[in-house]
Amino acid sequence: MPKVTIDDIPIEVPEGTTILQAARMIGGDIVPPAMCYYSKLKTSGGYCRTCIVKVEQGSEKDPRPMPKPVASCRTTVMDGMVVRNITSVENLEARAGVVEFLLLNHPLDCPVCDQAGECDLQDLGYGHGAQETRNDFPRREFEPIDIGDKIKLHMNRCILCYRCVKVADQLTDGRCHGVLNRGEASEISTYIEKAIDNDFSGNVIDVCPVGALTDKTFRFKSRVWYTNPIDAHRDCPTCCGKVRLWNQGEEVLRVTARKDQWGEVQDNEDGSPAWICNTCRFEKKHINDWVIEGPSKISRHSVISANHYENALRNIKADTLKMMGAKPHGVKVELGTGALDPNNNK
């Protein structure tokens, strides 16, 4: 099995593993962020360039460093490879550059965006983004369009990760949307606003890392952090029927697939991804439609887990005590020096 060292942490991984997967096996801060890669979708990744890493040593046989940063999601490890992610200042700077490019034309309309709170780009912006933009030109603008009666497309927010295109290619029986035009003018669209109509088309919403594809049955109903995520299932003839309900009291505001710690759809027992069908997602909006399993645990998105406010407060208290050391009284603690962890990585 090839042995790879990522940020000085060695790990042995199966043949054909990518650097990103190897990093995820190690876990923690060294995992490169991924905006376009989605392990459940074949040929995804390589586009957004946020997961770039520096390869200091190619392999045991060929120890030369790779001349350019590589996309860790699409580069397979070689035996003896030495990778630097967060231990290379150069790499972090390069990533900050990529984040700047991703945010360059992004409308930053988080206050009115349904994705806010569970948005990968928001997390990335907090982690790597600059305080202010250096772009003084008008941003690129598109009109929001309806693709079908259940899905809304806000092209302004799109980062062209191609995930929804891959979903349509690999999950549904005929793709009728894709990328039109090229360069900066590229957009995800259907020809003449044709509806995306397919049993599994709703999964494009789940894979969208930003708020470009949103669920019209949930739009503007609530901020995600005001809803309670609950795992539930039903006997569905089309899909696995295992979902996450986002409730306010007894009211089901939204149904999504269950996601893992990387923001990807969880696997079924047989290892296949637990995609859900449009009936489960859009039609079953009554609590009696579902068998409730219990509250979902979400550690990935700060604001959602902050829904469990007690947890967040407990964490702050614990961190504060740790910082004060043995002295419990009368020590002034500055907030923002470690006690708060906006991405809730710890």
Binding site: G46, Y47, V98, F101, L102, L104, I159, R182, G183, E184
Partner: peptide
Amino acid sequence: YHHESCGQCSPCREGTGW
């Protein structure tokens, strides 16, 4: 180069126009 960027990866798509 702005006109000819394919728009697939972010640095080129956004950077050339900028």
